[in-house]
């Protein structure tokens, strides 16, 4: 399998690196030094070289995270980070349907 790092990295705007946590599958984002379950903590990159470096750091942690990839985000004027597409919105906010109550 080609490593994601060997693929051409192109980003169209502010981006983050996201993955699923190995032991429970929970969505996580790469921070400057590790992982967080909050998108607000994510390290935001704006150029391909930064993205490559952030993805490289994420890939180096194979124990902690599964399938890291670069995902688009939007940055509001006040710096709030929000997901850049529907798939990522669902990963952040969870399913868009009501789940049955635990009974």
């Amino acid at each position: 399998m080609t490593s994601p790092l060997q693929q051409k990295i192109k980003i169209a705007g502010p981006s983050v690196v996201t993955a699923n946590r190995t032991h429970d599958g929970v969505v996580i984002w790469r921070t400057a030094s590790g992982w967080s379950t909050a998108l607000a903590d994510a390290a935001v990159v704006r150029i391909a070289d930064e993205a490559r470096a952030l993805l490289g750091a994420a890939l180096a942690d194979d124990i902690g995270a599964v399938g890291p990839y670069i995902a688009p985000v939007e940055i509001a004027a006040d710096g709030t980070i929000s997901p850049g597409n529907l798939r990522e919105r669902i990963r952040v906010g969870g399913v868009t349907i009501t789940l049955p109550a635990m009974a």
């Binding site: 699923n20 429970d24 599958g25 929970v26 969505v27 599964v66 399938g67 798939r87 669902i90 990963r91």
Partner: peptide, 8 residues
Amino acid sequence: IYLQLHAY
């Protein structure tokens, strides 16, 4: 066992 958007 698959890995999906939010969990296994």
